[in-house]
Design a protein around this nucleic acid. Structure first.
Length: 431
RNA sequence: GUGGCCGUAGCUCAUCAGGUAGAGCACUGGAUUGUGACUCCGGAGGUGGCGGGUUCGAGACCCGUCGGCCACCCCA
């Protein structure tokens, strides 16, 4: 009888980790609200065609990483591998594109890959998309927003911004041709993967990690020399805006991204603290995607950040407090049927008045000794004790578990009249 | 899909020329029948991932398989 395990690459996020996730989520949602972005909630499943048409037929994601299946009607569906396609679909379908739109979403994405550090098959992204603005001030807004987020999370020192421009499709075509011509002259020096990509997706040879291939690339033609005038001007303007706003960046002419829909600006926020998975956030402009998916021509920019990677980074490099406060403030203990009855009601009444405190009522009975053991393990600062004496005298014993207690002695506890319980607790938790 | 490392109690690990397993933590009971965290004593918990092979005998050696981690590929 083998036990059932989770699907490979689909991880549980346990109570000790969720506080970090919540901190990230809350920080991000407040931040996005402050920039005027509206939250959109999208399906996890879309028609497969949506992804193959937007991400690109020959990308790794579409070729071998999608979780696709036929539903009962024989329609081929896919667990979303990224968020932009669905967001664009929704924006078109729900007629959100008549005015500039600022949207964001969060949730799980699915890609069939071998798991490793910072990569799993079900992972979580927060995505941000802006529609209807073609000028680079929109791109800059996204990067400013990210920079602010890193500051708020205490990660500013661990993340840096890399920028590039891919130009329009004509420029990219021209550059691609030049690159292929150059690389073909050096085929012998290329690694196997790069040779395979030479004709299927040559731009991606640019970010190869193979040393010898990189040497060849050192003398390769550079994208910047092939940019169309508009892309060149927009990129210059973007750099200017970033500088004026004090956002540091480096131009990385090798930066290409794995999704076909990007044009003009592409960028990644990267760290060296997470092993091989350095990209913590990435995005760019996709001015043709809306039209490609059947909408009216609408310029757009967007990015997505990886929540697992950010949480990891918060833990490994975060300057700010990653300590998690005890989930329990008060632990209520009672022995004897009468005492239990009274305690249950009293604790409920307390919750009416002190809703901000986390109060755990001991369940399952047991001796005072074992119940107090539980109270201690819970991390509670205060234990409340009901026994026969308390019931008889209409009191509650308030015992301080963390402070004011001398080891080995029953100090730091006092017996207070019922009606003073709330005030006593307020005093204890006042600081 | 490819490569490297790993797989012994809930967790972290140990043992041994190959002779059928131990520690710490956690859990649990007790040390004045109303009091935790410290200390002391006791208890429970392992078909040594699974299958096969070599051997008189394997957790230890070999093969396969499954799983985990990390890396390649690519991305968040």
């Amino acid at each position: 009888m083998s036990t059932i395990r989770a699907v490979r690459g689909m991880n549980d996020i346990l109570p000790q980790e969720t506080p970090h996730w919540r901190r990230l989520e809350q920080t991000v949602s407040r931040l996005l609200a402050s920039y005027g972005y509206g939250e959109i909630r999208l399906p996890l499943v879309e028609k497969t065609e949506l992804f193959s048409r937007s991400i690109g037929e020959v990308t790794d994601i579409v070729e071998r990483e999608m979780y696709s299946f036929d539903d009962r009607n024989g329609e081929n569906l896919t667990l979303r591998p990224e968020g932009t396609a669905g967001c664009v679909r929704a924006a078109i379908q729900q007629s959100l594109l008549n005015v500039p739109q600022r949207l964001w979403y969060a949730g799980p994405m699915f890609r069939y890959e071998r798991p490793q550090k910072g990569r799993q098959r079900q992972f979580h992204q927060i995505g941000v998309e802006s529609f209807g603005v073609a000028s680079p001030d929109m791109d800059a807004e996204h990067m400013l927003l990210c920079a602010r987020l890193w500051r708020q999370l205490g990660l500013a020192g661990a993340i840096e911004l890399q920028l590039n421009s891919l130009g329009n499709s004509a420029a990219r075509r021209e550059y691609r041709q030049a690159l292929v011509t150059y690389l073909e002259a050096h085929v012998d020096a290329l690694d196997e993967d790069s040779r395979r990509r030479l004709h299927s997706n040559p731009l991606r040879i640019l970010d190869s990690k193979v040393a010898q291939t990189r040497q060849v690339l050192d003398a390769a033609p550079v994208m910047a020399d092939y940019l169309d005038d508009e892309s060149r001007a927009d990129f210059a303007r973007l750099c200017e805006l970033l500088q004026a706003a004090g956002v540091r960046y480096t131009v990385n002419s090798r930066l290409v991204r794995g999704l076909d829909y990007y044009n003009k600006t592409v960028y990644e926020w990267v760290t060296t603290r997470l092993g091989a998975q350095g990209t913590v956030c990435g995005g760019g402009r996709y001015d043709n995607l809306v039209e490609q998916l059947g909408g009216r021509q609408t310029p757009a920019v967007g990015f997505a950040m990886g929540m697992e990677r950010l949480v990891l980074l918060m833990l490994e490099a975060g300057a700010a407090d990653t300590s998690v406060p005890a989930p329990v403030d008060v632990y209520a203990v009672a022995a004897g049927e009468g005492a239990q009855r009274e305690a249950l009601a009293a604790v409920e009444a307390l919750r009416d008045r002190l809703g901000e405190l986390a109060i755990v009522q001991h369940t399952g009975g047991g001796s005072f000794k074992s119940q107090l053991k539980r109270a201690d393990k819970s991390g509670a600062r205060v234990a409340l004790i009901w026994g026969e004496d308390e019931v008889r005298t209409q009191t509650v014993t308030v015992k301080l578990m963390r402070e004011g207690a001398v080891p080995g002695e029953h100090s730091g506890q006092q017996c207070v009249p019922r009606e003073q319980l709330e005030a006593t607790l307020r005093a204890v938790f006042a600081d």
